[in-house]
């Protein structure tokens, strides 16, 4: 009994401290948005400081770990000599073509499978088997069949895009609530109206998840595909930097790849938000 009492006492004290802390934060001159930003960037900033300290300490060879400043310089150098622009354009084009093919096929198959049991029984097992074989395991045979040209790379990207978009589209369409089927019965909705006004809108959110996952995969697949062959693109630039021991360029390229991936995701998210406007509006 006594033990329990002490515990309670302690708890109260801790709570008070927490209150005091949050009170201090609340009354500080910084706005809550600034604090949120601080939360987000605290760890990255710490890592960069650590990185700079480690690189500057002389413990590591510069080839292994160039300083952040050198990486930034390498970045601007690549912009100046135009190599980054060329690589970006080439990779971007491949991603776009591969993505459009993969997404197109996945959407058609996904919608079809979602609406039709026979189609689902035909396509779902095939997609499932394709999914179990890693992207990297597909590359040798794709290169054997299609060479190391553009087509192979686009197929590799399309393969990376296909799975998440298919699965999420299928799930979205099959997830239409039973209540809405009843509503369609009661209102005697035609099948076309039911599809357009009920099935597709309720699947849109899930389809967008697929599209976003697919975009991430496409961006990863292009780098992987380019590392296998060819003389252009970000993946090739990475391999070349490694061979020439340009570690500053290597890291700069990695950062570029990461940032572009995030930008693509943000853009798709904005499009999604725009499409799902009705979700944002709530009771005032």
């Amino acid at each position: 009994m006594a033990k329990e009492l002490t515990l309670t006492g302690k708890g109260t004290v801790e709570k008070n401290i927490f209150k005091k802390l949050s009170g201090d934060i609340g009354s500080s001159k910084f706005g809550p948005r600034f604090l949120a930003l601080l939360n987000t960037i605290a760890v990255p900033v710490l890592l960069i400081i650590l990185w700079q300290a480690l690189a500057g300490s002389g413990l590591l060879l510069e080839v292994i770990l160039p300083s952040p400043v050198k990486v930034i310089k390498a970045f601007f150098e690549m912009i100046k000599d135009g190599s980054l622009g060329v690589d970006l354009a080439v990779s971007g084009k491949r991603v776009l073509i591969g993505y459009l093919w993969g997404a197109g096929i996945a959407l058609i198959l996904g919608v079809f499978s979602g609406l039709n049991k026979i189609a689902e029984r035909v396509f779902s097992p095939i997609i499932n088997v394709i999914r179990q074989i890693p992207l990297y395991a597909w590359m040798p045979i794709i290169i054997l069949w299609f060479g190391i040209g553009e087509v192979s790379k686009e197929i590799i990207i399309a393969r990376g895009v296909l799975i998440p978009i298919y699965l999420n589209t299928l799930q979205g369409i099959k997830g239409v609530q039973a209540e809405y089927f009843e509503l369609a019965e009661v209102l005697e909705l035609k099948r076309s109206v039911f599809l357009r006004k009920i099935v597709l809108p309720s699947a849109v959110s899930s389809i967008f998840t697929g599209l976003r996952l697919g975009a991430g995969n496409a961006w990863m697949a292009v780098v992987a595909a380019e590392m296998l062959g060819g003389l252009t693109g970000l993946g090739y630039a990475l391999m070349k930097s490694r061979e020439f021991l340009w570690s500053d360029k290597l890291i700069a390229l990695m950062v570029v790849i990461g940032v572009i991936g995030v930008v693509i995701d943000v853009i798709l998210r904005k499009i999604e938000e725009n499409t799902l406007r009705w979700k944002k509006k709530t009771v005032r």
Partner: peptide, 8 residues
Amino acid sequence: EHRLLPWL
């Protein structure tokens, strides 16, 4: 429940 479609 009202069963209105939230996206319309």
